[in-house]
Amino acid sequence: MAWFLFIDESGQDHRESPYEVLAGVAILDADLWDLVKELHDAETTNFGRRYSDGERELKGKAILKRKTFAKARTLPEILPNEVSALAKAVLDNGAQHGSERNIKALSLAKISYVTDVFAICENYDCKIFASLVHPAAPQTTGGGLRKDYGYLFERFFYFLEDQTTLTGFPQHGIIVFDELDKTRSHILIDQAHKYFKETAIGRHRAELIIPEPFFVHSDLTIGIQIADLVAYCLSWGFRLPTMEKPAREELAPYIAQLKRLRHRAVRSIQGKSDFEVWSVAYIDDLRTASEKL
């Protein structure tokens, strides 16, 4: 058995997002197609048709922006059974031809769809993994694999170890990235290969994580679209005590869902036999220990 880890980024442009996020969603290979079909059905149920047909993408920054929630709170009132038909009319004819009721319905459909996405992921026992990075975090100059990637791989490996123990059979991980530009993709592949081949911890983790990542187009791969929604919600809504950036309250229901999708590993670390390692981590310094010194 194998788990696909679909990975996407959010906030790396340092424009609006409060935190950089590298996020992934793990889906069991045997469940992938059934999950995809249910997500397609969720689109049709909420929007009256496939929202992502054509050039539209179900990206967090497009469908979960503040304007979406503001429109959903406006008058006039819309009955739940009216939402999909009104939303479909906007998608079919364009927003310029939609009434206030149509625009509100589309906003309601977007909000409901994301709720359904995370609920479907929970039904299939998917797990999320993420590294949240402070935008002012000191950067490493070592040229190796960045700490946010290292943390993500570490927590994915712990999950695979726990699944192997639970099932009694080796559970392998396949890494799938949203395609970057060619130069960045080659750099990332080179760094990943060096990490998994030339470091002791990387070689150990290569026993369960296949070191050769795949790159796909986000608009063609629904797993990457889920990872994008996870990354967006975590950046704007997930907070630990040491994270000072304000959270958007309207995203709180999604964060409650995502917290249930985290993996909790227990390992013997730092002299503690029951050290908790959660699959979502916050990083405020990307330098290595030697660089800090």
Rank of each mutant, 00 (worst) to 15 (best):
H97M: 13
S235A: 11
D125P: 06
I187E: 04
D92S: 15
E198W: 12
R262G: 03
D31M: 05
N123V: 12
T141N: 14
A256F: 08
A231I: 03
Q12I: 07
D284L: 05
E16C: 01
L86H: 06
A247R: 13
E249H: 15
A130P: 00
D228P: 02
G271W: 13
E212V: 01
H263C: 10
Q163A: 09
I63M: 03
V117W: 03
I222W: 08
D284G: 02
V83L: 06
F6H: 03
G24E: 00
D190Y: 13
L39G: 05
E43C: 06
K59I: 02
V216R: 12
Y158P: 01
E9M: 04
A62P: 04
K59A: 00
I210Q: 12
I255C: 04
G60R: 07
Y51M: 11
Q225E: 07
E179L: 11
D34S: 08
I210L: 05
R264W: 04
A206F: 04
D29M: 12
R56D: 08
L240P: 02
G271I: 11
L91P: 06
F159C: 08
K71M: 14
E82Y: 10
H186Y: 11
D13L: 15
V277P: 05
H14K: 14
H186I: 09
T221R: 11
K194T: 05
K61E: 15
K245Q: 02
